[in-house]
């Protein structure tokens, strides 16, 4: 945490490299969040980049009243939300298939892995955004309910309720869709 503040201080005193250190530190976390929220690999990197650009331009207004990561994740969630709102789409199967990653497994295992990811991605992107954001921040990034409440700007009770409902929704969706696969 203090390392982040050090980078911020250095950046604000003119050291551009300090900002690059922040990007390197958080890029994979940010990409995982964005990808889980929008379900589209192709757009995830653009959204992550856009979020970091927003951070770059507004870092001087960061009050350091919360952790940098909290502030960053708030920007990331809002940027992903804006993207979905503008596009007004959820996710198509084609996009999910295209999104599947390359693994060092054999072709058969790889295919099953892709299919499984497609099912999970479909289920996750069908969860309403505010519930999805809560469960992604919890399960993907391991944030506490308190941290999530600060990122999403709601109470801890609301976070608990959103995560509970998102998991119930996903449990039903995945058990219907998955069969033996999941």
């Amino acid at each position: 945490m203090s390392e982040d503040f050090d980078y911020i201080e250095q950046f604000l005193s003119g050291e551009e490299r300090a900002f690059e250190a922040l990007v390197r530190k958080y890029q994979n976390k940010v990409l995982n969040i964005v990808y889980s929220l929008i379900g589209r690999d192709r757009d995830s990197e653009d959204i992550a980049q856009e979020a970091f650009l927003k951070v770059y331009h507004s870092l001087s207004s960061f009050k350091q009243k919360c952790q940098f990561s909290t502030w960053l994740y708030r920007i990331v969630v809002n940027t992903a939300y804006d993207f979905l709102r503008k596009r007004k789409h959820l996710v198509s199967n084609d996009a999910v298939l295209e999104a599947a990653h390359t693994f060092s497994a054999g072709p058969q295992e790889e295919l099953l892995m892709k299919e499984k990811q497609m099912l999970i991605n479909n289920a996750l992107t069908s969860v309403p955004f505010k519930f999805r954001a809560a469960v992604v921040l919890k399960d993907m990034e391991g944030l506490s309910y308190s941290e999530i409440s600060r990122v999403l700007g709601c109470s801890i009770g609301t976070v608990e309720s959103r995560i509970y409902r998102a998991r119930q929704f996903l449990k039903v969706k995945l058990s219907r869709a998955g069969g033996d696969l999941l």
Binding site: N32, S44, H101, I120, M140, R167, K171
Partner: peptide, 10 residues
């Protein structure tokens, strides 16, 4: 469900 979400890790 929690483990499944982690499957989406890039």
């Amino acid at each position: 469900v929690k483990a499944d979400i982690l499957e989406l890790m890039r």
